[in-house]
Write a protein that binds this DNA or RNA. Sequence first.
DNA 1: TTGAAAGCGGTACCAG
DNA 2: CTGGTACCGCTTTCAA
Lengths: 347, 347
Amino acid sequence: MNLEQVARRAKVSTATVSRVLNNASVVKTSTRSRVMKAIEELRYHPNLHARSLAGGKSKTIGVIVSNLENPFFFDIYKTIEQDAHARGYEVVMANTDYRPEQLVASVRLMIGRRVAGLAAVVSEVDTSLIEELTESRIPVVFYDVGAPRKNITNIRVNYGRGIEKVINYLHSLGHRRLGFIGHHAVLGPINERMRAVLDAVGRIPTLEVRTAADADTLEGGRQAARTLLSTGYGPTAIICVNDITAVGALQELRDRGLRVPQDVSVTGFDNVKLSEFCCPTLTTVHIPREHIGHIICDALIPQHGRAAVTGPEVIIEPELVLRDSTGPVAAGWAHAPAQGPPVPNRS
Amino acid sequence: MNLEQVARRAKVSTATVSRVLNNASVVKTSTRSRVMKAIEELRYHPNLHARSLAGGKSKTIGVIVSNLENPFFFDIYKTIEQDAHARGYEVVMANTDYRPEQLVASVRLMIGRRVAGLAAVVSEVDTSLIEELTESRIPVVFYDVGAPRKNITNIRVNYGRGIEKVINYLHSLGHRRLGFIGHHAVLGPINERMRAVLDAVGRIPTLEVRTAADADTLEGGRQAARTLLSTGYGPTAIICVNDITAVGALQELRDRGLRVPQDVSVTGFDNVKLSEFCCPTLTTVHIPREHIGHIICDALIPQHGRAAVTGPEVIIEPELVLRDSTGPVAAGWAHAPAQGPPVPNRS
DNA sequence: TTGAAAGCGGTACCAG
DNA sequence: CTGGTACCGCTTTCAA
């Protein structure tokens, strides 16, 4: 089932079949329909590998994300896919689960596939990998990582500002003892979000903060909250690295009989849909994921013959979204311990 | 940057470079290291398209799902990916968003890529598509669709039984006026889940049910609940087609000031992680997604030279999981929270 | 408007 | 152990 068989059946050359397949308008209508018929009858499906090998191009862009399970990444991915499809491109996705080896493997895979462009929406890309990518001459967009560079576009969120808004807001509500819940990938090396929190806290002398971290999942958020609370440190507000972990934390607080926001305030980050469907709804920071997806596609897919539409660096300014999970500090909560047996659940 | 350039630099033939790349043990150590060095220096990455074209095989399996945003599909996908990687296979994913044209496009894409196997975890595959797939001689696993067939393995969930368990349980709690929330893809044609609900309800004369449907998302579930409730029909229990829509429904009930389960009971389906992180936690039906993923991989990837490990059809028996979102119709009963592993059901 | 043929970048068989 | 070379299936000049 290859071009030749189709050609034989339609009594034309493989070149002509190829033309039909690619909508070359030069083919005579009668010939075209004869070929179409043969294709139909043979249930012929062109071999895409052969196609991109011969053509030299691939018409597909690669997307690498840290954790597709987190809607934040999924939303970006989905936007990229929509835009790409609209422009006749396919997209292949790879999920690294925050594993560095997997990232390396995925990048190599994408290079091997000769993708037309690559979006890396991941944390922590090491320098040699970036080097490797640069050599490959593939247009790349990094989100949240590294510095602008030859044939590389960078998108970064101004976490500092986002976190600052959260912390100023909590401070204005009277909170002084804060907790921060990260996820492993974000607490390991000196990390931007972590740093943003410490910096913002450092700017206000009366504030103190302690941190805990676990996986970037609902369960991870719950576990991190458990860790944070079981030390006896009784934060009046918990800042979570994102909405998913925040929802996990919410569940842990509920299990312990702590009311949100009366006893503890909680904030998320990203403003994924779920943040409007948990209870209480989550005060969070909006990151425009669709916008980011669009920018990525614009930078990766040539529009009208010309390539990159965006400059080498794009900064996203996050906005605070107030909902029900935050409130003023209750009087008298100043020295309450967070130890002892969990309070039974109530309905 | 192709084989030839590497060969030239290492002063060997392309055949030898190929041998090195494929770990052929016949290569002399000194030669091998010389080649490796050249590969390294040139930052050479083999062209995967050329590779699979020449080799005739692809070492990748395709996965098509209806809605990756729903953790149900994601969990299956993730399991498949893990298993596949463990056996040296790549996986390419396609998301149809329940759009039939997208399904067709995705299937063609997979055939074009000459995948070694294809998993279709989607609803509503039309017959001609199945035909097309059969002709392609690609090993296929269908979840939830169609009948067993040549080179096609089928996995299906016994929805009838699952729904029956839910309805019997609700009936035993005194519920008589039920609501069912589906999603568009599931309410359109005569559908299995829908039918399961109607059948089960029909079996108990005192029961009545009304339905509503919207998208398979949190927002869709909320909207469907809104539709259902705004008719004035006051169900005492709402059965949702899955956990995501159930969480959406939960939010709508909360907005209306209806308490769950005191005023209205709610059930989900699938038992995704989120069902333990919403409030109240969701009574649902467990579908073993990892198990399904394993079965799919076993059927698609040749183990020790032989192909399909599973027979042509596998039936999954769902189990009821009791949590906090369901309770008796009459108020005044102290509902005990049921947590943890699935509770065996008897009905 | 159509056909013949030269690649595209590997793999694998056959010699040596 | 290594080199030469015929494909794999399709695209793309170049002629006809």
